[in-house]
Write a protein that binds this DNA or RNA. Structure first.
Lengths: 225, 225
DNA sequence: AGCATAAGTTTGACGACTCAAACTCTAGGA
DNA sequence: TCCTAGAGTTTGAGTCGTCAAACTTATGCT
């Protein structure tokens, strides 16, 4: 089906950037940045993906995966997220380190090992960061959630997903008692300072920038309305 | 410390061939065969290992790892065997398939994951084939054992290690009830035919060539003397 | 409209790993 | 001793993924 480890990385990066981008297209520069290569390198690799019918691209435009490319990207994402779940649930590693580890392991997992892993973990639907794990057939169920930054003062909510998976951010959240599944309450909002104050249940109040809060997704349990 | 996946594969192959070879040197042709490359390729890679002080080699001679190379090879072997143990013990895969899977995974395991895996498995000393797992410091304890081919008629023994790890051989052994830890008895030996007949405890008699039997190691529990 | 700047593309080169094929050495008969 | 078969080496070339640097296009500001 698909080829090298490098190709897998490009597909995954394009897939994720496409989800984020407004135009549903991944800009070449961001693909390059995501992979840590020069834009020239990204351009020539994308050319290869296009030749393999994994992506579409026109000169000076954005990159978009084909159905085939999307299917392959979801397969990689499935491997990545199952491996992360395994590293946290079975091996007990901290969620702030598993992303990088999974990045390496995801390419070495065969379908047989993947299925055994899935079974061992009880066929989980979400990984430790709350990201949905694509099913083997490529189905992906995003969970309903809103950015924590949109909560109002006094709102109570449950944390369901963390989008920013840099180790630094994850360590801050864990240290604050903000993990997936935790409930919390908005104590105060200071729009001028761009800061909100949050109290996780059973923890003490922490301050977060609105920007950081916008990358944490929650589900409202009791609104202020 | 060490470099690419390819280099790791060469080191592991040389280490294993060196153990087997009479002269404690790995012949170039066998290195090439083990890695599935031409001898020309092996020659040039070995040249690189020598430049990195991982191996010694003189023109038209055999290859021998340096202390540094041996240390690196043991590290890879540790990863390989721990992964195999994990695949069998935790994920429940059959021992006839885990070798190839571990071959891919061993290169993607970081020290942190390796240690977590080791802890999760209870710091095992042997893998599912009975091969000793090198310790993190490079210590390796070979178990005392003799080839099953050296048993005499009527001898009882426990199977402690399987050297031939091709899927075909392992499937035969498993189907016969001959797994690591099993006890067995030699029913008959027919030197002319080069065949011995074995009865695993709780199983029925199976025939094996002396050659195949020589690659199965046992510990005598009751001799015929 | 005109132009500077940011974004993307192309080109030429390189390192890692590989092969095929020509070549060289070693060792074991006759 | 000589010669040859087998093992090993060398050379030239190719693929993959990468970079640096020269070049092209698009965009947004004045």
């Amino acid at each position: 089906m698909l080829a090298t480890e490098t190709v897998e990385n490009y597909l995954k990066a394009i897939y994720l950037l496409q989800r984020e981008a407004a135009a549903d297209e991944a800009p070449m520069g961001q693909i390059a940045a995501a992979l840590g290569v020069t834009t020239g390198t990204a351009t020539s690799m994308v050319k290869k993906l296009v030749a393999a019918k994994l992506a579409r691209h026109e000169r000076f435009g954005g990159v978009r995966l084909t159905t085939k490319g999307t299917r392959a990207a979801l397969d990689i994402l499935r491997r990545h997220r199952l491996v992360e779940t395994f590293l946290v649930d079975t091996l007990g590693l901290d969620w702030s380190v598993v992303h990088d580890e999974a990045e390496r392991l995801e390419h070495a997992i065969s379908p047989m090992v993947l299925d055994a892993l899935d079974r061992h973990l009880g066929r989980p639907a979400f990984d430790p960061h709350g990201d949905p794990i694509p099913r083997a057939d490529g189905a992906l169920q995003e969970s309903e959630a809103m950015p924590m930054s949109e909560l109002g003062s006094g709102d109570a909510a449950r944390l369901v997903r963390v989008l920013d998976q840099r180790g630094e951010s994850l360590r801050f959240l864990r240290a604050s008692g903000l993990k997936v599944g935790a409930t919390l309450r908005v104590v105060a909002i200071e729009p001028g300072a761009g800061v909100m104050r949050i109290r996780p249940d059973g923890g003490s109040v922490v301050s977060m920038s609105t920007t950081a809060a916008s990358r944490v997704l929650v589900r409202l349990t009791r609104g202020r309305h």
